[in-house]
Computed example of a mutant assay.
Amino acid sequence: MVKPLDRIDRKILRVLLGNARLSNSQVAEMVGLSPSPCWQRIRRLEQDGYITGYVTLLNQRLLGATETVIIEVTLDRHDDEILESFGRAMAAMPEVLEVYLTTGEYDYFIKVAVNGTAGYEEFLRKKLYRVPGIRHSRSTFALRCLKQTHSIAPMVD
């Protein structure tokens, strides 16, 4: 059974969200615990599914993907075969950063990283438009990222 979060658990999550590379001793000091109970809480938060993993965030511009493009996609049909096929195709494309099945006018919201407009044209022609079942897409280039987070920060009492 998943234990509800208390104030200390929420503090630990906020600290790790800010910097997951901190040592257990550093986290413990920041949340007012000794290292052993802090380590036990972090392990429990992982086991209970509050912490699902740790990642390294890379600077896509320095890696040659200078543009972020948001693509809205409508499929021809919505049967299981097409949805699963589309999902597998998106997962296989390294340019695709995020994919959301959505409600509304479009079926999917896709975030991709490409090298300029030429890179985006190549992505469209050689990859996206070769995926079966796409009826329509609409693209928007991001001019600037104003906020980027990967999880919500839990409120601390």
Rank of each mutant, 00 (worst) to 15 (best):
55 V>Q: 09
153 A>T: 08
147 K>A: 02
88 R>T: 03
47 Q>M: 06
129 Y>P: 01
57 L>E: 13
146 L>D: 02
144 R>G: 00
126 K>Q: 15
75 L>M: 07
31 V>W: 07
94 P>D: 12
98 E>K: 14
88 R>E: 14
23 S>R: 15
6 D>E: 08
43 R>Y: 05
33 L>I: 06
89 A>V: 04
49 G>T: 09
136 H>A: 00
139 S>T: 13
38 C>A: 13
5 L>R: 11
9 D>W: 10
24 N>S: 01
128 L>D: 08
60 Q>P: 13
4 P>S: 06
102 T>L: 09
44 R>N: 00
76 D>S: 06
3 K>R: 15
134 I>V: 13
144 R>F: 09
23 S>W: 12
24 N>C: 00
72 E>G: 04
4 P>H: 07
83 L>I: 14
87 G>W: 12
144 R>Q: 01
30 M>V: 02
66 T>E: 11
10 R>E: 00
157 D>V: 10
32 G>P: 07
131 V>I: 15
103 T>S: 15
125 R>H: 08
68 T>A: 04
26 Q>G: 00
87 G>S: 15
10 R>C: 02
120 Y>L: 13
117 T>Q: 12
144 R>Y: 01
133 G>R: 07
84 E>W: 02
117 T>N: 12
107 D>C: 08
131 V>Q: 08
80 D>T: 10
93 M>F: 09
129 Y>T: 10
88 R>C: 01
46 E>C: 06
95 E>S: 13
142 A>Y: 00
29 E>P: 01
85 S>P: 00
54 Y>Q: 09
56 T>E: 11
141 F>R: 12
153 A>V: 08
111 K>L: 14
72 E>W: 14
98 E>F: 07
143 L>M: 05
150 H>L: 12
106 Y>Q: 06
53 G>P: 05
107 D>K: 11
6 D>S: 10
129 Y>V: 01
87 G>C: 05
104 G>Q: 12
146 L>Y: 10
130 R>I: 03
100 Y>H: 15
68 T>Q: 09
41 R>N: 03
129 Y>S: 09
43 R>T: 12
43 R>S: 12
64 G>L: 04
141 F>D: 00
69 V>W: 14
83 L>M: 15
14 R>N: 03
54 Y>G: 01
127 K>E: 15
92 A>P: 03
73 V>T: 09
70 I>M: 15
77 R>F: 09
130 R>A: 11
27 V>F: 01
47 Q>D: 13
137 S>Y: 14
134 I>W: 13
43 R>W: 09
21 R>M: 08
109 F>Q: 11
113 A>W: 11
94 P>G: 04
17 L>M: 02
33 L>A: 01
128 L>M: 12
89 A>N: 09
5 L>G: 06
112 V>G: 07
67 E>L: 11
82 I>A: 09
10 R>M: 04
39 W>P: 00
